[in-house]
Nucleic acid binder design. Structure first.
Lengths: 151, 151
DNA sequence: AATATTTCAACATAAATTTATAGGAATTAT
DNA sequence: ATAATTCCTATAAATTTATGTTGAAATATT
């Protein structure tokens, strides 16, 4: 499948969640809350957030009253950064980032197909920031609320 | 990872390979040859070609002198058809084709991100046919030959 | 027509990777 | 001290990737 792994999906949701909390308060967000809101187990979130921390997209604060905060402003975090941190790549197929991955690259009848698709995707994820995602998300929720009010 | 599975990758290579043989002769292509040319085990190719047959992208001819042929002209086979046959979908994330996959779709902060990426990809794979892939491939090999001649 | 050969077909299983859960240690605030 | 929280390691479950074994069908050869 052309598929985004759960790491990539959950990790991005985690980041959007942090961004939303961040907007409302400066206190660190605890994974317990993210877990409840997103329906993803704490244990799994703990694993997923490690590469985000290593790649300095979030900062952790240990101990009671601790949690996680974004390391930079949402405008300065690209979705591509998140995916790269989580996957070690932002590519559709490995041969594009790692020429040694497949010896047939030079004659492969499909390399250019994937390359084209990959460039499309990369452009898309390079342009989109966490702030953009946040705005799309807030708008969506606002619209949903409006709808229920009308009822 | 945003990743195309081996099924999708190998299956597409298989189809391009059939298309190339098809051009040079009308005889069925045997998986043994595809296996050697593409460096993919026959056993695995056998598994991969099943959904391609079920979805009527290839036809099988049993017995001595048998093999596989394309069921339609390369101009009439879209890359999207191939991926769809192999993956049961052409989507980046499952929630886009199956709304029941995740109950959070309505409030998910990342759904629109994936939807946008998915539409890009789908458009790309819808437009590209096996014939296009074949031409890219032939050109590439011709260029490679020219290069070695100059040497 | 009988036989051998070639090829696909089907089922089983092994290996690797991804996805997810569990338990407890380390750190900090109260 | 105690409670809250991240951090670390282990491991279980599910899925994807890949190989092996045997059988069935069609064809070529005798």
């Amino acid at each position: 499948m052309i598929r985004l792994s759960t790491k990539g999906r959950y990790g991005t949701r985690l980041m959007v969640n942090l961004a939303r909390h961040h907007k409302n308060s400066n206190e660190p967000t605890i994974l317990k809350n993210v877990s409840e809101e997103e329906g993803i187990s704490i244990r799994y979130l703990e694993q997923i957030i490690i590469p985000l921390k290593i790649n300095r997209l979030v900062k952790s604060i240990r101990g009671a009253g601790g949690g996680y905060i974004l390391a930079r402003k949402p405008t300065d975090i690209k979705i591509c950064d998140i995916l790269y941190a989580l996957e070690g790549s932002c590519s559709l197929v490995e041969c594009i980032e790692d020429e040694t991955f497949c010896e047939k690259v030079k004659t492969c009848g499909t390399y250019e197909i994937w390359k084209g698709a990959n460039d499309l995707l990369r452009g898309y994820f390079e342009k989109m920031t966490l702030q953009d995602a946040l705005e799309i998300c807030e708008k969506k929720i606002a619209d949903a609320k409006k709808k229920t009010k009308v009822k």
